[in-house]
Simulated assay, not measured.
Amino acid sequence: MPPIPLEVTGNTNEEPGPINPVVGIIYPPPEVRNIVDKTASFVARNGPEFEARIRQNELGNPKFNFLNTGDPYHAYYQHKVKEFKEGKGQEQSAALNQAISKLSVTPSAQQKQQEILKQVEQPFVPKDPPAEFEFIADPPSISALDLF
């Protein structure tokens, strides 16, 4: 029998991540999480036959390995399917979108970023030639066999 996941609320000072992370589930990186979440929502709406069809069509695609029971992200996938079936998945998506909108850059900050980038992108043009080498020595002639 698999362990029962416990809900833990996240700290607001930490990096943005899952809103209510569940203990015992490995959360995939964001690019994989998007695929898992979308697939879970479709499977929750269309049923396990749809999952079987995806598994068959994407047999060689490593992006869909989470459909296999041995994959570390399979538990997260099952958790998301359950959430979408219960109607909780949309609430978290809305809360996540709201949190992302709070992090958006204001136009004045964006303008400052552009000014800084323009300053950094200007090529460096030396005014004086480089100084002469202080020490110049020719390396001794050693054959490749002598190096071993």
Rank of each mutant, 00 (worst) to 15 (best):
H74Y: 02
P18D: 07
Q110I: 00
A109P: 00
E49H: 11
G24N: 05
Q90Y: 07
K82Y: 07
I100W: 03
I100F: 02
P28M: 09
I4E: 13
I54A: 09
Q113W: 03
S41I: 14
Q110W: 00
P29S: 08
F50R: 11
T39W: 12
F124W: 15
G70C: 00
K112M: 04
K85V: 10
A131F: 08
A137Y: 07
P139T: 10
P140I: 04
E15V: 01
Q114Y: 05
Q119V: 04
K112R: 09
A95S: 06
T9A: 14
I4V: 14
Y76E: 01
Q111S: 14
E15H: 00
I26W: 09
D138I: 07
V125C: 08
G10F: 02
N11E: 04
S108G: 05
F148R: 08
I142L: 13
P72C: 00
N34C: 15
P29I: 03
N34M: 14
F148Q: 04
F124P: 06
E51N: 07
S93E: 10
V22P: 02
Q114K: 06
F124Q: 13
A44M: 10
P21C: 09
Y77A: 00
S143N: 08
I4R: 12
E86T: 03
K63P: 01
M1C: 15
P3W: 09
Y73G: 01
A52N: 12
R33Q: 14
Q98S: 13
P3H: 13
V8H: 12
M1N: 15
A95T: 06
S108E: 13
A144Y: 03
A137C: 03
G24M: 05
E91P: 04
A40G: 10
G70T: 01
E132P: 10
K112W: 05
E121M: 15
P28K: 02
K63H: 06
Q92R: 11
G60H: 14
A94H: 02
A75Q: 03
E132C: 08
F124G: 04
E58Q: 10
Q114H: 09
P129L: 12
